[in-house]
Design a binder for these strands. Sequence first.
DNA 1: ATGAAAGCGCTAACAA
DNA 2: TTGTTAGCGCTTTCAT
Lengths: 340, 340
Amino acid sequence: MAATIKDIAKETGLGLATISSYLNGGNVREKNRIKIEEAIEKLDFEVNEVARGLKTNRTKMIGIILPELNNIFFAEIITELEDVLRGQGYAAMICDCRTDEKREEEAIDFLKRRRVDGMIIIPTGKSGRGLQEVMDAGKPIVMIDRRIRNVRCDTVLVDNRGAAEDAIRRLLDRGHRKIGMIAGAEDVYTAEERFQGYCRALEAAGIPAEDSLIVRGDYTIRGGSRGIKELAKRNPDMTAVFISNYEMTLGAMIELNELGVRIPEEMSVIGFDNIEFAKACIPRLSIVTQPTKELGRRAAELMLKRLEEKERTEFETVRLATRFVEGRSVCCCPDGERGL
Amino acid sequence: MAATIKDIAKETGLGLATISSYLNGGNVREKNRIKIEEAIEKLDFEVNEVARGLKTNRTKMIGIILPELNNIFFAEIITELEDVLRGQGYAAMICDCRTDEKREEEAIDFLKRRRVDGMIIIPTGKSGRGLQEVMDAGKPIVMIDRRIRNVRCDTVLVDNRGAAEDAIRRLLDRGHRKIGMIAGAEDVYTAEERFQGYCRALEAAGIPAEDSLIVRGDYTIRGGSRGIKELAKRNPDMTAVFISNYEMTLGAMIELNELGVRIPEEMSVIGFDNIEFAKACIPRLSIVTQPTKELGRRAAELMLKRLEEKERTEFETVRLATRFVEGRSVCCCPDGERGL
DNA sequence: ATGAAAGCGCTAACAA
DNA sequence: TTGTTAGCGCTTTCAT
């Protein structure tokens, strides 16, 4: 059995409170400090954080709920998040809900029972069921990447609309007019924002958005390959395509590869996320990248701030900028007349 | 404040033990069961797992230590792991140690203080310092992917040597004789096994392994691109290359892309891991893939089995087979005489 | 600065 | 089956 502070007390002849005080950085007489440290060393004592958590009602655990861990975009965010949190002594209890709303709700309950001090969530569902109660119980929530209407809390987002707008504008500048988009599902926050950016850029250029140039994928590899096939079939005159997340970009590249479409001669492409993948493509892919590390860091910092604050202050929403990384997958299309 | 079983007892007029018995699946009179359920509903009671953990000395938390979460190979393993564990009510406390031995040791301490019921680790360090003590304290440990000599515990590995041997044999069968390898660092368990497979296959074919055809990367993208550059420079007559992990494969592809080397006409390539990436390559890459899901699942199952067992049984070592996925990145080289 | 004692929410004997 | 009681390891008044 592991040693307890009782054992340390007995070993040193001191009282429990003194040991506790020492452990929590209180003032202890030099002489006793040494005695305690020797006893700790000798008995191989380690604070029992479970007991401490029960007593203080603070477990120093943060629940993290996300759609899927085996997704490089989310994994990068969580990596940074966990790093910052643990640096402050907080443990990350991670729940992957497999992009399933029901599982997401279960995860929230699971974490409530475990009495985490707060939750950081990259939402899957749209309802946010269960979250408001967590907030009401005084446990802070920080949301990343997607927003949910009913839940008021700190949020860290990306400027999705601006990112898409910028990408499309670059295609327009190179003379493209028939620009396809592989968008995400309508009920996904980021997907909708990116889609709006696409529309807005075209609108600003006086080009009506055509239904045939838009397909809805579902942020999966399969969705990307289906999407590009569909677009190509429907639009022989399409000269460029904008793909709005990494998995779909990967799927589209696989399919373009399969179809033998030459990039950028036959088709200009702008993808999303994962710069390493983009560099490995032939030719190098132009992409929009998101600041994953910063998303994670800012979310962790917002959480830590909430955990320290005495009284609740205004909720913050941080919106981070994306970056465009130029590859060689976009060519000029002066007459807007090439295509497949 | 959240309701406690005391509140439920007061509300129902029953004793604490009855409530506890109900919560733990004991026998409770039908009438009382209903009363309790109503009270739980009314007071919005949820078991406090922290208190339960303190009392039972079982937190139902499993510590998971890994080199890096933002690595698709590890992320896939952890995803499956967490899924299986949570399905049995266990929480995954994940610690990313950034491939840093010191951080790995800190993570072990961190998890000990938190009194996790067991640890699953994908080791970074070679010493396994701190792990044996965990075992001695009666907490099971399961190791994944890499083995550590001093620590005796359940282990789930991949047949790395066989995988490399098979890959090289395929190249030999197609007539290649000058086969390069981008290996990992010598002190990395999997890297060494894969390297041995390479040597063994050549040996079986009566071809001496040449130093100039072997470079040591460090399992990073950068290591891969440097590796292929070095190999190409040193061996103008090299006709094929085997790259022994995903990151280095990615790096090598980026560099080959940069150098304008045509695959497979000028260079046959066999990579490692990440089938999606392989499919997106032009031409599709032939690769060795590892059974990530099964690695995670088996590890979780071994852990659960240990947690249930009354007395300690023999440690198990599971070794899983890899799979070769044929692409179009290997060509025939009948005379062994082409190359760059 | 230190000690004594109460109690966080739960489980597990033991009695009834 | 149910109630009473002790105690898991810690923190935290309140005295001293």
